[in-house]
Amino acid sequence: MSRLILALAATSALLFAPAVFADNDEGEGGEGGGWGAVQHAATQAECSGCHMVFPPQLLPPESWNAIMGDLKNHFGEDATVEAATAESIRGYLVANAMQMPGVDAANPPLRITEMRWFTHEHGKRLLAKAEANPKIGSLSNCVACHRGAASGMFDDD
């Protein structure tokens, strides 16, 4: 399993270093840079029940399709939403996903923390420290460190 993730990560690293994650380039969305907060109401309402509403730009469309296709098994929990709502959220996420060619649609990365850029941007040492901090609780808790994360602002490191 970890070998698979590693292979996946390595592949992503070689083929696509998403330009969006270089420094100072998150200025597409609005004044303070970043993507801006997720404006899609259903996505905002449903996803925020358990975690920060992650910007769709953090994963490729194949990943969002896979995630939205199995909400009954959502990272160890049942996160089922009504079918029509789920479809609307899926459409929003896919339409605004990271552009990243060559993703294996049958086996896409499912976790943002699995993405090569994620480790690269944070560094392993910092990630280990964050993971061990009970106040952060989980690496998916972006807002614990990135104060502007809910507004799509991550360029504060």
């Binding site: 925020s48 358990c50 975690h51 920060m52 160890g76 929990e77 952060i136 609780g137 998916s140 808790n141």
Partner: peptide, 26 residues
């Protein structure tokens, strides 16, 4: 159930008058 969530208290704690925390830290 799912292995990471054996109890209500996993997320809601054993004191429902207090705030809980999701597995994602919220």
């Amino acid at each position: 159930g799912k292995p990471d969530t054996p109890s209500c208290t996993t997320c809601h704690t054993n004191d429902p008058t207090k705030a809980g925390q999701t597995r994602a830290g919220k």
